[in-house]
Structure formats: structure tokens, C-alpha cells
């Protein structure tokens, strides 16, 4: 996967979430929304390393992972906007998208993606294929008991599991540095006989290189890997979070290092892209995602009389 593709992916992801933001003040998205804005480089770094049969289990901040895994953006945005055309017909919403076809799922409960990914990994190993499972977590979930339980099992049985930690520095308001016993999360790897690395999560090339290493390790049957990618969460934890716990200076400095700008400058200086080409990509992506938004807004919500559907798949009236 080349750098241009990574850049395009980052820009598309950014505009996807910016389009979603439009639905918050209008109450079209009437619950929580957690965007990945600022964290695009990590998902872009996954590009080209995953097979369709690989599983990815994500978190409350899952849009980018769904897109990278190949979930249809129109149906994903429809789900986020609670529409019948959504991948879950509006029953799941933005924290609970499921797509069996892409082996993609998510959970809204912090830490709970890892056991589910481990279940996939167990099944893959049992079937002797070379598929792997990725469990995505944030830095907050690294302190959940599932982190230890999952990695211990994966390490003990050499299961094909990649734990991808998007370390954006905060669990809502609590800085990870205040609640972590070690310098990094990845250095726990040795406790689990796992591969581990902590990298700059703002540069998709660096992430991609690390993902390649991790995936090679896993696919060659050497057991699990922990890849920690350090990044920034540009907005509050959720839309509506006043984010008063971070200083203005901190936020100012953070935004100066926008990974999309940094990467476009890098590609300019490497002469991979010209200024014109970059502007083209930006405009095309914006049109694409806001075009989706327009279509999604025209879609219908699920019918009220279907609210009791799907509790069970088999008849329960005896």
C-alpha cells in the first residue's frame, strides 16, 4: 500500500467524522458520538495488512476501523444516523456496528473488545488458517482486567491476536501517565511472551511498518502482539464533553501537530504529491463524505413497530 493511498484514507476518515459531527447539534444523532478525529494515521497504517477473513473488534471510537475493514461507508454513516439503511438497521447505533461479512464488530464497553477478538483468534488457530484477529483498545482499556486475561491466554496458546492500543493519552479526563505503572503499555508484552512495540501513531508510515512486523510475527505462528500507537484525541471524549480538563496551551500544541497536515507536508517534501494533488484529494474526499451525508439524511428511520424485533432469532411463543 503506498503513501498516497494512506493519505487518501486519512483525509476520507477525517471528513467522514466531520460529516457525522453535523448530526449532533441537529439531534439526528440523538445519543453519544465519539469521533476519531486526530487519530487517522493509525487506521491508515493498517491499510494493506489485513485480509477480509481477519477479524477486527473495535471500541466506542470505531468508525475508522470499520472503514479500514471495508464496511460500506454509506451504510456505516446510516447506522450512525440511526437510519433503517444502516448496517444494523438502526438497532445498533454508532457504538455497536456489526458486519459479519467483514468480520467486523465493536463494543461500547471499555475493555470488552479484547475477549471477543481472542475468541476469533482461538477459532482461527483451531481451523489452522492464517487469519488473525485484531482487538482495538484505547489506553484506558489497557488497565482493564481483560487486557491481562486476554494476553495471558493468547500468549499461553500462541493465538493469532494483535492488540492494537490507540494511546491518545486520556481515559476521558484522566491522563494515562497518572494511572499507568510503566512508561509504556507495550512493554508489558514480555509478561505475555508477546511481541510489543510503542510507536508514534501520528505517522501512518511508521504505524504501517510496525503493523507489518506485528502481523508477520503473528502469521508465522509466534503468538500475540501488542502494538501501541501514541496519538491525540482532538476533541473531547464525546461530543458534548467540555474538555475543560486540558489546558488551552496543551490543546493548541496538539492541534498544531495535526497528523493530516504533517503527513501532507511530508509527502510534499518527498515529492510524492504536489500541492495541487493534495488539494484535489481533500476536495474529492470532502465531496464524497458530505455527499454521503446528504444521502443518509434523506433516509428513513426504522419503523416504530419493529422495536421488538430481533430479541431472539427463533420463535419464543412455544
Amino acid at each position: 500500500m503506498n503513501q498516497i493511498e494512506r493519505f487518501k484514507a486519512m483525509v476520507e476518515m477525517r471528513f467522514f467524522d466531520e460529516a457525522c459531527l453535523e448530526g449532533v447539534p441537529t439531534m439526528e444523532i440523538h445519543g453519544e458520538l465519539h469521533t476519531g478525529i486526530g487519530q487517522e494515521a493509525i487506521s491508515a497504517g493498517l491499510l494493506g495488512h489485513l485480509k477480509n477473513s481477519d477479524a477486527l473488534v473495535s471500541t466506542h471510537r470505531n468508525h475508522y476501523h470499520a472503514l479500514i475493514k471495508g464496511v460500506n461507508p454509506y451504510r456505516l454513516m446510516s447506522e450512525i444516523f440511526e437510519k433503517k439503511t444502516g448496517i444494523c438497521q438502526g438497532f445498533g447505533g454508532h457504538m455497536h456496528p456489526f458486519s459479519l461479512k467483514q468480520n467486523f464488530s465493536a463494543t461500547g464497553i471499555v475493555g470488552q473488545s479484547l475477549p471477543v477478538a481472542l475468541g476469533y483468534a482461538y477459532a482461527f488457530k483451531m481451523r489452522k488458517g492464517d487469519s488473525l484477529a485484531i482487538g482495538v483498545i484505547g489506553d484506558g482499556a489497557a488497565n482493564h482486567g481483560t487486557f491481562h486475561e486476554t494476553l495471558n491466554i493468547a500468549g499461553a496458546w500462541k493465538l493469532p491476536l494483535l492488540v492494537l492500543v490507540e494511546n491518545n493519552g486520556y481515559g476521558i479526563s484522566v491522563p494515562i501517565s497518572k494511572v499507568l505503572a510503566t512508561e509504556t503499555i507495550a512493554e508489558r508484552a514480555k509478561s505475555y511472551s508477546a511481541w510489543g512495540k510503542c510507536v508514534n501513531g501520528d505517522d501512518p508510515d511508521i504505524v504501517s511498518e510496525a503493523v507489518e512486523e506485528a502481523v508477520d510475527h503473528i502469521r508465522s505462528n509466534q503468538g500475540p502482539a501488542i502494538l501501541e500507537a501514541v496519538c491525540n484525541r482532538f476533541r473531547g471524549h464525546y461530543e458534548g464533553d467540555t474538555d475543560h480538563y486540558r489546558s488551552k496551551t496543551e490543546k493548541h500544541n496538539m492541534l498544531k501537530g495535526d497528523p493530516i497536515n504533517t503527513y501532507s507536508e511530508k509527502l510534499l517534501s518527498l515529492k510524492v504529491l504536489t500541492e495541487n494533488e493534495i488539494q484535489n484529494i481533500v476536495q474529492t474526499s470532502k465531496q464524497k463524505m458530505f455527499g454521503l451525508l446528504k444521502r443518509v439524511r434523506g433516509e428513513k428511520m426504522p419503523l416504530p413497530e419493529t422495536a421488538l424485533n430481533y430479541i431472539f432469532c427463533e420463535k419464543t411463543d412455544g
Binding site: S105, L118, G119, Y122, G145, T146, E149, T150, N152, I153
Partner: peptide, 27 residues
């Protein structure tokens, strides 16, 4: 492979059941 003693990690091996089910197993 099909009858697996788990470590004392109920939270995780119950969650594994979810991933197993999504991958086509019947745990």
C-alpha cells in the same frame, strides 16, 4: 481444541464465546 480447560479468567473466556460464535463456532 474442542474441550478446553480455561484459566480462571471468566470475564475473558465468556467474551471469547462471543468471538467464537461470530466466527461460526457454537460454544
Amino acid at each position: 481444541n474442542r474441550v478446553r480447560d480455561m484459566p480462571i479468567s471468566e470475564m475473558t473466556f465468556t467474551g471469547m464465546g462471543v468471538g467464537m460464535a461470530m466466527s461460526g463456532l457454537r460454544p
